[in-house]
Each structure stands twice: as C-alpha cells, then as structure tokens.
Design a binder for these strands. Structure first.
Lengths: 132, 132
DNA sequence: ACACTTTTTTAGAATCATTATAAACTGGAA
DNA sequence: TTCCAGTTTATAATGATTCTAAAAAAGTGT
C-alpha cells in the first residue's frame, strides 16, 4: 500500500481506518473539496465496515496538521477541507454551495505591501464569491 | 438620533435595541471587527438594560442583509463581522485571533482571469494569515 | 389618547457541527 | 507472546446559532 509509507513517515500509524480514508481522499485525479459529512458519505460508499464519525474528525485533523489537507476559509456552517495544499484560490458558488479551484495563473500575482511588525505571512488566500 | 433615519430608510423600525446596537457598531472612528459575543460585551458596557442575545443575532443579520455589515470569511468557531462594507481585505493574526484591515492599496490589484459560465463575481476577498 | 395590526423582542428550547471522554482495541517493538 | 503507547469507538458534552411562541413595542387610523 502506497499510503503506509506516507503515514509512517509523518509519525502516524497506518491503521485500517486511516488507509481507507487515504484512499477516499487521495486516489483521485482532481482536487477534492469536502466537508466532514461529505467525506463520511464517500467513506460509506467505499468501505464495507463503517468508520466512526469521531475517527473521521480525528483523521482529518491529523492529516491537516501534517500538511496533507488544508482548511478553506469560508463562511459556512460546516468546515471545508481541500486535498490541494499548494497555494491556490477558490471560487465559491453561493447558490450551489460548491467550491471551484482557481489556479494561481487564473489570479494575477498578489503582492501584499503592508507588513505587521514581528509577524510573518503564512498564507494568502483569495475567495471569489459567485452569484447568478 | 442620526440612526433613526438610516433604519427607517431601510424599512427597519428604529427600536431602542437597534439604536443602541447602532451606537456600539457605528459610533467609531475605525473599522470594527467583531464576533457576536464580543459585540454582546460591548453592548453590556454601553447600555444599562440588557439586550437579549437573540436580538443581537437578529439585528446583526438584519444589518447584514441591508448591507451595513458583512461577514468575513475565516475559519473560526465564531462568525466574524465587519462594519467596513467596502471592498477590502484582511490580515488574520492566528495567534491573537485578531483581524487587521488591509486597504485595497495595501494589496496589488487583483485580476481574476477565469470565469464560470452564467455566474457573476460578487466579491473578491483576500485573507492573509499571519504567524510569529 | 385609544384601539388595532404588524413588527420586534425575549427567554428558553432545539439544533447541529464539533470536541471531549473513557473504555476497548490494535500495531509494532522487545 | 507480551506489553504499551497510540487509535478507535460510542456516546456525552459543548457551544454557536436558530427556532418558538408569547409578551412588548411601534406604527396607523380614529
């Protein structure tokens, strides 16, 4: 299994649950944007034995901490995560409540001119809201 | 009272509670970023008679709908609002959990090259996360 | 001021995403 | 195999937000 190494290397035990979640999350061509509930559904379809909701939360947070996932800043009742952890941006379709990737090349270069004393810039994220 | 007109003009009855919340929100020099709980504290200090939490929620949502407030997209357990409804951006200090305004002039012009069929761009918001 | 309608406020209950708990289980080292 | 730290699990707890429905206040016409 290709994910066993990945998990071991980051100090996470390659448990059955984590490996199955890896498959759902990372065996894809395209970026995957999801909420915990959407992920749970995908896991249900993918796997015979169910994985506890608490484990899904634990795992997603563990993966986020290790840098395999990132949260997308957005105002929604549920938290959105992204399997694409590179620097990139998003459209958010307000009606459909769906996220769409914006490559860096789709957004002109962003140059933050202001700086705050003693603070480093960790990330720059652009959210483009769409309406009909 | 200067807010009576403002409320009437937007079809909101100028009640005692709304006027007091207006004072807390809008009688300031600078932009005010707040969560509902922070706002409740400010109201407590400003007013003798307490305003019900439900009313604070109702009022903030009514003001948002009328365009006097906007939500700031950010991953936090609480929703952040902003009295500055012009197009502008934010630093978010992850350690302090504080928002800092970024004027448009602090951020180079942002040009979204991609378009989605049948959708209009409603807003473009940049969130710059800060760490130590 | 009074009567009447509509909007607003309110306290408390309900909801829902997320986190905490603590007992059972598992992976991996010795 | 034995042991232990790390994981999983069901369930309870938490906390922000929304709902409810009754009381209060605002606006309107008389």
């Amino acid at each position: 299994m290709k994910y066993i190494e990945k998990l071991r290397n980051s100090g996470l035990r390659p448990t059955k649950q984590r490996l199955q979640i890896c498959e759902v999350l990372f065996d894809r061509e395209k970026t995957f944007h999801f909420t915990i509930n959407e992920l749970e559904q995908k896991i249900k379809n993918h796997t015979s034995r169910k994985i506890s909701l608490a484990t899904v939360y634990n795992t997603v947070h563990a993966f986020e901490k290790k840098g395999y996932l990132k949260q997308i800043p957005i105002n929604s009742s549920e938290t959105y995560f992204d399997t694409n952890v590179t620097d990139h941006h998003h459209f958010y379709d307000l009606k459909e409540e769906k996220l769409i990737d914006l490559e860096n090349s789709d957004v002109g270069p962003i140059n933050i001119l202001k700086r705050i004393n003693g603070k480093k810039i960790k990330s720059v994220e652009v959210l483009v809201k769409l309406e009909d």
